[in-house]
């Protein structure tokens, strides 16, 4: 929470109390979603669907951690800019293996 950075600890106690309630809610949600992830895997869905569902649940869980525990929901613009750039490069990285399709046709240029 960057707005706390300049304030002394102990200030805006009511604000922190509200945060703590959110942390507990997120914690319970993460626990439930962990059980959901494991339960879904027991159904032995077709692989593409299993991957899609598992990644969807993981993305929801990851977003909850990033938004609330890492306070990204109320962060400064510069952090969003850094992360925006990171996401772009991360996606590029994940698609990089496609270049190896067709026995490296694209690599040979």
């Amino acid at each position: 929470m960057s707005e706390h950075a300049a304030s002394a600890p102990g200030h805006d106690a009511a604000d922190i109390d509200r945060h703590v309630k959110v942390y507990i809610t997120v914690f319970v949600t993460l626990m439930v979603l962990t059980i959901v992830t494991v339960a879904i895997s027991r159904f032995h869905l077709p692989v593409p669907m299993a991957i899609a569902v598992a990644m969807l649940v993981a993305t929801i869980k990851g977003s909850l951690v990033a938004c609330y525990f890492m306070h990204l929901i109320s962060e400064k613009k510069l952090i969003y800019a850094v992360l925006g750039l990171t996401v772009a490069f991360f996606i590029a990285l994940l698609f990089l293996p496609i270049l190896t399709v067709h026995n490296g046709y694209w690599m040979r240029g």
Partner: peptide, 22 residues
């Protein structure tokens, strides 16, 4: 230090289904 720790948690959230369940 907490931001780093949450990141470690976040990575595991993706590693767990990827490696153990799929």
């Amino acid at each position: 230090s907490g931001l780093f720790w949450h990141f470690v948690d976040l990575v595991w959230i993706f590693l767990f289904p990827t490696l153990y369940l799929l």
